[in-house]
Structure formats: structure tokens, C-alpha cells
Simulated scan of single mutants.
Amino acid sequence: MPNHPDHSTARSDAQVAVSGPAALDSLAAALSYRSLDWSVFPIRYGEKRPRVRWKGLQECLPDRNQVGDWFGCWPEDGIAVALGPLSGLLAIDVDGQEAHAELCNRLGTLPVTPAVKSGNPDPHRYHLFFKHPANLETRAKATPWHDQLEFRGHGGYIVLPPSVHKSGQRYAWLPGRSLEDVPLATLPDAIDEALKQEAHRRRPLAAACRLRVSRGVGFRIRLLHGISNDTRTFLSGRYADGPLWNQKLFRAACDLAGCGYDSNHATELLLAGARPWNSEEEQRALATIQSAFSQPRQPARSTALDPPSNRPVTSWEHGRITINEIGPAIQSRPEDGPRCERNSR
């Protein structure tokens, strides 16, 4: 586990800087946020797309020199902060009048905590910032109360002032709700409880990726020898944060399709390897997988274990297979286990 900074010791002069005259200077603002021990990084001007690879910034703060280099190179870029325990932040993204009404109805009144007005002209689109709860595992987005009321934590990021919205307007701290005006509030009990219930209902990633196989439910999983080493690496999740993510997903999906994997079960494995962090990425990944399985494919290449002339098939009749078990399962010869049977291709 990384050593998270003590956010209670953040400098008060940094708080003044991000809401004072320097607030329209992205470099000055970014350095001020960094002085609060926030893990900040640049996003493209007028967009929400990260300029740099940012997922590692959930575990390690960029140093001030790195932040200075980024915004010195791209001075007009916007600023985003990685949410979660490292930055000590959880944000609520209120996206419209219905979401605003739901939040007020649940809490009785809006909490007194720093708040940012989105660049969108709708007055009911804003962000609230809270201290990240110490003993609660959060995720990029949770919507237990309303689809447009997002509780954002670890795995996500949010835009900060003075970034420019696609409308051309700037994100800005609301009057009386800047970091200079009010401290970060503790997460309200009602939201804390909602997130705990959400976490309790949500299966861990490993469980979500586990395939239960039995004749009793009328299906079997066939693990085929012969998938490429690149596909095996993709399924392990090692490519999830790297470049060309979608292309590697497509190649892995084509390989599994060519090896005869059932599309439904292959989709579970591929999504676990891709690790999409939000619904938009998940939909993109599903479309890529569907495209790969939409027509006949050939395996990427054979492994040393499997001569291409006689590629064996392993049928697991019972038990479970998890992502961490894929490698050993594939490397085991079919005759090694009593639950395996040799089939002809």
C-alpha cells in the first residue's frame, strides 16, 4: 500500500493561490493544487481527455517539477485531479436539476464544503468535494441514488478550475465555496452508508471474473491450448493501463474467437483483462469484443505446448476458473487432471 500524505498539513497559502488572482493561470493553479498534496495532471483544452497517462497517479503523486513541466509545455490545458485516498478526495458530480433535487431531498440541505460550478450553463451542474473516507473502498463512479448523481472516488478523476469547458466557459469555484472559504467537509453519513451498501452488493473483480462451470446449469467452458502469449498477458490485466488498449483487446478477442471460446464466457475474461474504469470504456470494450466475434477468426499463433496440426481442447466439467488461474490452467496438459478429457478439434 502506498504511503498517503497527511492532508491536514496542506499549506494555507496554497489554498489562497487557487482562488486568488492566479486562478486563471493553469500552471500556478496546478502547482497550488499540488501543494495541497492533490494528484493533478493536464487534460486537453476544452475537453476532459487526459493529456498524459494518469492511472499511475492514483498511487503516486507527481512531483512539482513534473507538474511544472506538463503545464509549462501545455499552458492552456485544463487541470484534473485523481480522486481517492492518495489525494484524499471524494467528489459528487451533480448533473442536472433532478440530480440536484435528489441530493437535497436525501440530505435535507447541501453540505457546506468546497464546490465547483461546471462550465455548462445549467446552474444545477456542479461538483462537491469531500474528504475521502478512511475506511471505505470507493470506485470511479457509483450512482446509488440517481443516474445523474455520481459519487466519484478511487479510479476516477474530476476537472478543476480554471479549466475550460467545451462550451468555452471556465470551471470556477462557487462564491463562498472556494478552498479559501471553507474546508473540505467529512462525507455525510447518508452518503457514506449508501457507498458501503453499494460496496457490499458489488462483487470483487476476481469474483466477477470467476466462471462457475457445471453440468447443472447447462453449459461448460472449454479452455483451448494454443492462445498466444500476448493474449494470455492481456487476460492477466498487464495491458490495461498501457497504450493501444483497444487494439490489444481486439487482437486478444480475435485469438479467443479463433480458438473456439464461447463468446459470452470469453467476454467475461476479456473485460477482466481490459479493466474498463467507467461505463463509456466498458461499452467501447463490448463493441470491440462483439466485432471480433462477428465473423470467423484464426488463432493468433500456436504456443510451444500446442502443435498447430492437433490443437487439444480441455473441457472443465466442474469447478471455477479465475483470471489468476488462467495461466496455470492453460499450461496444464489435459491428461494431468482427472476432470479433463481430450476432444478432437
Rank of each mutant, 00 (worst) to 15 (best):
E59P: 01
R311K: 01
A91V: 09
R64T: 09
N229L: 12
N120R: 12
T109S: 15
R53I: 00
P276E: 13
R251C: 06
N105H: 09
L110R: 06
L174R: 11
D95T: 06
D95K: 05
H127A: 04
P296Q: 14
D230E: 12
H7D: 00
R49D: 15
F234A: 01
T143S: 14
R202E: 13
N105M: 06
G156F: 02
E193A: 10
D255K: 03
P144V: 12
L90P: 05
W70R: 02
L149Y: 08
Y261A: 12
P175E: 11
R51E: 13
L223I: 13
P307T: 07
Q197K: 15
G88N: 09
G327P: 01
C254D: 00
A28D: 01
D37V: 03
A28N: 00
N105L: 06
V81M: 05
Y126C: 04
P188M: 12
G78M: 03
E150S: 15
A30M: 03
A274Y: 09
A292D: 09
V217S: 09
G218E: 09
H7F: 05
R64A: 15
I227E: 02
P114E: 04
R339G: 03
R251A: 12
L223E: 03
R202G: 01
Y33T: 00
L211F: 07
A257V: 15
D336C: 04
T143H: 05
G218T: 10
R125V: 13
K48N: 10
S302R: 11
W316M: 13
L187Y: 04
L174E: 08
L270R: 00
D230L: 10
R222H: 04
A272T: 05
G88S: 11
A14H: 14
A30F: 06
E150W: 05
S236H: 10
D181Y: 08
V217D: 02
R215I: 11
Q66P: 01
Q295K: 06
P2G: 03
L256H: 07
E193V: 10
D13V: 09
S228E: 10
G319S: 07
S315C: 08
D147K: 13
V16N: 01
P85V: 02
F129S: 04
P21L: 02
D77G: 04
A99M: 09
H127R: 14
V40F: 11
E47A: 01
Y33N: 04
S163E: 03
P62T: 10
G78V: 00
E59H: 15
T143R: 15
G56I: 00
G119P: 05
G108A: 12
G327S: 15
F219N: 09
L223C: 04
A91R: 03
E281F: 12
A252Q: 12
T186M: 13
H318P: 00
P296E: 14
R251Y: 07
P175M: 12
L89S: 01
R222I: 08
F219S: 10
R311I: 03
Q290M: 07
G72A: 13
T143W: 02
P21T: 06
T322A: 13
R320F: 14
